[in-house]
Write a protein that binds this DNA or RNA. Structure first.
Length: 346
DNA sequence: AACAGACACAACCGCGGTATA
DNA sequence: ATATACCGCGGTTGTGTCTGT
């Protein structure tokens, strides 16, 4: 089906800003005849414009009930409230603001209110406080992943004062620190382990790796750990062995760590923290919902850097937060004289 | 005064949904 | 059932104006 744009058929129709004369013609015609068929209207009104353009001009500018001028505080708060509720449904929002057009509200939002909310530390899309603007950290994180993937460590160009193994370990440490600082944004990187005995071909920092063999598009770091709070999908499994069967055939999109405190993800009464893989890449992962082990949306859990407890093929142990901090201090002490790492850390 | 960049807003474009022949 | 026409929406672009250098 589909249809060609209405204006393509009307060759030579005028575009761009409307002249007063055109406005007058359109207004006069509509006042006398009303509007119904926009396609035939321009011809009848003596305008060299396409019907769509006439409609837009009338609806957004010439209509007599249009209220122009600055938005009041009350209007602003209405827009914010409705936007939080409806999203970018400008026409629906406009429906609650008599005299205001969807286009006007959209423009006002994009030029004024978006900025205002950002300045207030509020995310204009989610309407939630932007407590964790992590883009700089994510940049570093992605840089680390790229460096590793491209082999830009060791004797290569990025950190050329050290051996490959030394640099790899240092990169791993930096990433762990980032993970501790910003657990929700930085996925675990067990696969950095150089001595992994992992039987699965676990990809490197898969959620943001740049040249992964994973055929699925890689989401940006932290993206699959959203806060959707969806209810768990009822794909029931009975044991951890079954979980890995469920996910077996899928590529690893990334690694998440589920803390015991997380919503319904740790078996009640257990004291261990469970580490699982989000094998499917659809944001689902194994976890407890009540007493039942289910395939649940990763968005309903928080992520913790601590990883002790359950061992499973596909997961591996790495050091605790305390160990990382100790290593970090040592690293800082050691590296203060290393100009390459020093400048990187800065 | 001249220029560049930022900003605000009007207008356009393309698409999806619906009505109609 | 299908093709076409139209309307309305949301995203994007173009252009005039303002502001700083």
């Amino acid at each position: 089906m589909g249809r060609s744009p209405c204006c393509d058929q009307d060759k030579g129709v005028k575009k761009g800003p409307w002249l007063q004369e055109e406005d007058d013609k359109l207004t006069a015609y509509i006042n006398e005849n009303g509007y119904g068929n926009w396609r035939s209207l321009p011809k009848l009104a003596g305008l060299n414009r396409c019907g769509k353009s006439c409609r837009l001009r009338w609806m957004n500018y010439l209509r007599p009930d249009i209220r122009r001028g600055k938005f009041s505080d009350e209007e602003e708060s209405t827009i914010v409230r409705l936007h939080a509720l409806l999203g970018n449904k400008w026409s629906k929002i406009a429906g609650h603001l008599p005299g205001r057009t969807d286009n006007e509200i959209k423009n006002y939002w994009n030029t004024h209110m978006r900025k205002k909310l950002l300045q207030m530390g509020i995310d204009p899309m989610t309407h939630e406080p932007r407590t964790n603007d992590l883009s700089p950290i994510l940049d570093v994180s992605q840089m680390l992943a790229a460096a590793i993937n491209n082999g830009q460590f060791g004797n290569n160009n990025l950190f050329n004062n050290n051996t490959a193994l030394e640099d790899l370990l240092k990169l791993q440490l930096i990433h762990k620190m980032l993970q501790i600082i910003t657990p929700k944004a930085i996925p675990s990187i067990n696969s950095f382990n150089t001595n992994s005995v992992n039987p699965k071909p676990e990809p490197v920092v898969n959620s943001f790796c740049t040249n992964s063999v994973n055929p699925k598009p890689n989401p940006p770091a932290g993206l699959f750990i959203n806060q959707s709070g969806n209810t768990p999908e009822a794909t029931s499994v009975t044991s951890y062995e079954n979980i890995w069967d469920v996910f077996e055939d899928n590529q690893l999109p990334g690694l998440v760590t589920v803390s015991q405190e997380s919503l319904n993800t740790a078996k009640p009464g257990t004291s261990t923290t469970t580490k699982v893989n989000d094998y499917t890449g659809d944001g689902m992962m194994p976890g407890y919902y009540g007493d039942q082990l289910l395939k649940i949306p990763s968005g309903s859990v928080s992520v913790s850097p601590e990883t002790t407890g359950l061992n499973h093929p596909g997961t591996s142990q790495h050091s605790s937060g305390v160990d990382v901090l100790e290593d970090w201090e040592k690293f800082l002490d050691d590296e203060t004289s290393d100009s390459c790492w020093k400048s990187f850390l800065e």
